[in-house]
Amino acid sequence: MIYVSEALLYICFALLTGTFIIRTVPERLRPDIRVGNGVLLVCALAVPVLSFVPIHNTAVIFARDFDMPYFTILRQVLSDIDAGKAWLWTLIGSLGLAALLALKSFRDDKHMPKVGLFITFLLIVWLGYASHSASLYGMKGVIVHSAHFLAVAVWIGILFVASWFSRNGENWPAFVRWFSPVAIVCVLISISAGLILMSFTTPQYVQSWILPYGQMLLIKHLLLLPLLLFAYTNGFGYRLKLLRNESFNPRPWIRAESLFALLVLIATGILGQQTPPHDVSETLQSVSPSPVFTAIYKGSFSPDIKLALHLPPESLLLLAAAIVMAAGLISMYRGNRLKLAFAMGVLVTLFGYFGLMFAIA
């Protein structure tokens, strides 16, 4: 349940961020995009509900361990723990945003998107305040986590809104011209902040593959590969495609890209509720190894095992197959064969995953 709620929470943030940014862009620079205010209102109200799930789980665990009433523990969590304090601010900000969205005078005001975007930015900062990195590294952790998630929300939010809520294909060249550099900047920020976060939470990257957190982190990174390939074709190949075929419709391709982005968001949400392995051998004292890892790894296992990568023939073949699928995805874009391109994107992740897992020694 907690993984589902966290994934839905990240999707709500992406929808809010993407919609408010799109509404600040002049109509001549974007397609006709209609996101109903009801959708935004539901997202604003869902944020405190979904972000309360980990608070509730913490209170349940403490109430059971200390044999105290649930509401007594909940009150202490909300008043004494940073994650609880952040949730209270999230509740206030979300209800404020929902109240504004419910006012017709505000919905019709030209400054509405800017105000909504500012409140959403504050909600993202409070999400960072409640993160693992913030609890370990204070304000530095808050800034890095918030920057990482904000970049992802801007990139994927605009992508998701433009692909699924656009009414027509007008102004796509103008949209791509400004969105491509925005996406590139967001990708660079998210990668840079992500590497810093990994140095905080997962300094033993390969070693962490023993744990569920490390497995999900690896899957997230491998899902980024087809996402970036689709982003490359949609951002740079689109202009060439349009020159050759004026009737080319980019929306199905951008929707395919958004589906991989959705998978990345889901993986990110799951990571947010798993124990980060600052020291894998110590984490294994309280967290069981990943069932996927134990099913694939055939060597002897102990909590103090040290993993390394080598490249046996089967790993080389699988990684080579992943590269072939990546090249095939770009080729399928040139031939406008979306289903094959999407399948190849999935295979890039699968072949890459098993190629790396079989390389563990």
Rank of each mutant, 00 (worst) to 15 (best):
S5D: 13
S5G: 14
A7T: 08
F13I: 13
L15K: 06
T17L: 00
I21Y: 06
R28K: 12
D32H: 12
V35P: 01
G36P: 06
G38D: 01
L40C: 08
L40R: 01
P48I: 02
V49G: 10
L50I: 09
S51I: 10
P54S: 06
H56K: 11
N57Y: 05
N57A: 15
F62E: 14
F62N: 13
F71R: 12
I73E: 12
V77W: 03
L78K: 03
D80N: 10
K85P: 00
W89C: 07
L91N: 08
S94P: 06
S94V: 09
G96S: 09
A98C: 06
A102T: 07
L103D: 04
T120Q: 06
T120A: 12
L136K: 11
V142L: 10
S146T: 09
H148N: 02
H148D: 00
V154D: 01
W155G: 04
G157A: 03
I158P: 00
N168S: 11
E170C: 08
F175Q: 08
F175H: 09
S180A: 13
P181V: 02
P181H: 11
I184A: 11
L188S: 14
I189W: 12
I189S: 12
M198I: 13
T202A: 05
I210F: 14
L217C: 03
I219W: 12
I219D: 13
K220T: 12
L229K: 05
F236H: 05
F236A: 02
N245S: 07
S247K: 03
P250F: 01
T268E: 06
G269M: 07
I270E: 03
G272S: 14
L284I: 06
S286T: 14
S286I: 14
S286G: 01
A295H: 15
S300P: 04
D304S: 08
P312V: 04
L318I: 14
V324G: 03
G328L: 10
I330Y: 07
I330E: 06
R334Y: 04
N336W: 09
M344W: 06
G345A: 03
V346H: 10
